[in-house]
Write a protein that binds this DNA or RNA. Sequence first.
DNA 1: ATCTACTAGTGGACTTGTCAACTAGTAGAT
DNA 2: ATCTACTAGTTGACAAGTCCACTAGTAGAT
Lengths: 174, 174
Amino acid sequence: MTLSRLILGLLSLAPMTGYELKKHFDATVNHFWSADKAQIYRTLAALVKDGFCVAETVQQDGLPSKQVHRITEHGRAALLEWLETESSPDAERNAFLGRVFFAGQLDKEQLHKLFDRRRETARNYLASLQEQLAASPAANPGEALFFQLATLRNGIRHVKAELEWLADIEKELV
Amino acid sequence: MTLSRLILGLLSLAPMTGYELKKHFDATVNHFWSADKAQIYRTLAALVKDGFCVAETVQQDGLPSKQVHRITEHGRAALLEWLETESSPDAERNAFLGRVFFAGQLDKEQLHKLFDRRRETARNYLASLQEQLAASPAANPGEALFFQLATLRNGIRHVKAELEWLADIEKELV
DNA sequence: ATCTACTAGTGGACTTGTCAACTAGTAGAT
DNA sequence: ATCTACTAGTTGACAAGTCCACTAGTAGAT
């Protein structure tokens, strides 16, 4: 459901191929929803079958032909309906916290490795999110770009929270 | 993988039935990993098949008979190995942020509904996590309970970050 | 000359997780 | 007397997502 609506959302901004959708996912959506390309192509086929978008094959010279997908009125309606419905909170899935939960069974060295690695990835991730944000033009509150950047800022807030938590825990563990 | 190791983790604390595992998941693991009971029973069967735990049927009077699962040495080794391996960061999956990403297409009323609902659920969730934490006895850094509570404190940090982010965004949107 | 990456997409196998129904006895509430 | 919840577990169908291999031409790098 979510993937199909996110695809409709991207198609509502511009007609696109599955290949381009994958690029957009990796570049701007990845921090809250990642998508496998096989999954994208299959979902796209389902959207066409449901009449939410239409595909047009475009021949190119020197490159493989491509299928440009365009959202339909029906598709726009489905997107809007989804935007307006309450999102049941996604189940948290955090394997790292699973390791922490049982970390009493680790020796000191492994314990510090666990937290150190987490801190490292969090720091790198924070840097990449901040770069993305800095690379974007400024947005006025309310316009489309503002909301897209808002999701980035959400990610940044959360990674910072993670780093603060790590600092707390590591301090207590001396 | 993760579910099977979390089950092994719980079994490493005490032998248990699938039914009890489900209770433990709902009570203490849910904030970072939720588990469906069908999934628990199937994973448990796989763990037995792999020799990571053994099942013993216990007859009860007045109640259905139950299968108590006990972790084996082999299972403890598998758990430890998992604890020591690096967790590849779980893909973020946040349908709410998906709605935010395209929220430029909503009218003012729907927009505020989107954020208001999120704030409400976040507040309630925060309260429930804090209650859980307050209801726990104090833990000394390094002991098993400390790490279990650390996962709760992680959740609290993150929900607070979410609320701060919401306040930022709502302020900017006037 | 070979290797890699990019463009554009397809197909199969597989894992993980979700939902709902079903069995069956006990105990408490209305 | 009926309804609901608890205990304990099983099964089937399905949805969603992942991984890998494959096609096939172009262009740049070593």
